[in-house]
Design a protein around this nucleic acid. Structure first.
Lengths: 250, 250
DNA sequence: ACGCTAGGTGTACGGTGTACACCTGTCAAG
DNA sequence: CTTGACAGGTGTACACCGTACACCTAGCGT
């Protein structure tokens, strides 16, 4: 009890506190605001102090991602493998959506930390428990790609931050006409996506819908291959390229 | 002809020359080496000179990506829509593999340049020409995600650059045992992937195979939905979430 | 009482993107 | 032929970044 007599002595830094501060900063101001200097300022400490608890900035971001992974939930036991995978992934999605910077952070990560491996292991285990062959599980996890982290790589959304503040209606009409002339097919599918409401063509898509659509498309494909007893025969085709032979498994 | 009398007058910068220099630099030394200063040095010019031809660094990278997109090839006419899409995507893949930095560049791009829109339009047009509904095309393109650029988002490869140069065999064995204990399922699928050869578990995967596997899995799923006359009914489920209803379409 | 050490400090370096003022060579209009 | 605008290359400067390195200092085990 005689430890903290000096009550203006602030509690010492730890790796955990540094990471939490970085996450809080990213939550509030985005990943770009996470600099060593900013995080240090947030902790009332000089920038170089962080290096006593974090190897470098790269590892700091790794640790931030690990914290997010820590928020992933285990699905209830006794579920169908397909449903169990679905819930794992959708739980990951919820966590990533809670931390909007996480998508970008994950995309730039290259290091497989124990937390990352742990999640991958749990996911692989869920597939394997469903009876899928390790071979098939491997390829399916590749096919899921970033989707296992709860987001799909998108070049559709991410509304760019207001270049020209307010194009006049006629300018907008001219731009629209130009767009329709040059990119008719994009316009066509965008129209379908918004069910005819072209007010804001760009920023329209229902990301949740798209995510679940793709996820189920892939899981369903996996189930079909599993039922058909698919194996990656890897028949060499002479042009040096193995062909998966996916079609018509069901 | 009396124009370039002074033969030591170097030809003037253009936006195209700046972009080409940036691409060459990235090809040779990676995207990280592409700084305004480096590109300027490559052109024998002062850094600020670039700003007369490129709005800022962000646009410069946009332009670099556009150059890569310019290398994408049109598929031969008269093909099945599925095969035509496949070839478009695989052509994109070849271009991206020619420029190893392009994957990373594309992933960080948010702006839809005319070149980007043009490619998306061509791809959408290929689907539509096959008779797929705009609705389905929209969702399928979402599901393909980054794959339409010829790469799948991977957290498996990207071998980290040699942290500990040479762990002793016994250290390696100990690490292996630890790994097997903590991540048995990852080990299992990695073993399957390398067909039992665990020499280099990490850097093993045949990326070409994985890419084509996933691409065909998705295209085949799309074809199945198309044949079944799938429409995104979007039946509201009360929990505020539309459910795609993908399964069992064929 | 002593010295080790974990951990916070201060300074410094080389890199980044880019704002801004400046110069200069070319060309069209008077 | 002169002039003046202007496109385009220059130089300087600023704020920020990650981090190497030397330093100090408080607390602890011996």
């Amino acid at each position: 009890m005689a430890r903290q007599v000096d009550e203006r002595r602030r509690e010492p830094l730890t790796a955990a506190r540094v990471l939490q501060a970085a996450v809080a900063l990213a939550d509030a101001q985005g990943l770009a605001a996470v600099s060593m200097r900013n995080v240090a300022k947030e902790l009332g400490v000089v920038p170089m102090a962080l290096y006593k608890h974090v190897a470098d900035k790269e590892r700091l971001v790794d640790g931030m991602v690990d914290l997010v992974i820590g928020e992933f939930e285990e699905p209830a036991p006794g579920l169908d493998w397909q449903e169990a995978v679905r819930r794992r992934v959708l739980s990951a999605r919820r966590a990533v959506l809670r931390h909007p910077w996480a998508r970008q952070a994950v995309e730039t990560r290259t290091r497989r930390t124990p937390a990352v491996l742990g999640y991958m292991d749990a996911l692989a285990g869920t597939f394997l428990a469903g009876g899928l062959s390790p071979d098939l599980v491997h390829h399916v996890m590749h096919a899921l790609g970033n989707r296992i982290w709860g987001f799909s790589p998108e070049m559709f959304d991410e509304t760019p931050p207001a270049d020209a503040p307010a194009p006049t209606p006629e300018e907008q009409a001219a731009l629209g006409a130009e767009f329709a002339r040059r990119f008719p097919h994009v316009l066509q599918i965008a129209t379908a996506a918004t069910r005819g409401d072209l007010s804001g063509v760009g920023q329209g898509c229902d990301e949740d819908f798209e995510f679940v659509f793709a996820l189920d498309l892939l899981l369903d494909g996996a189930a079909r291959l599993h039922r058909a007893g698919w194996v990656s025969v890897g028949r060499p085709t002479g042009d040096g390229q193995d062909v998966p032979d996916v079609a018509d498994a069901g």
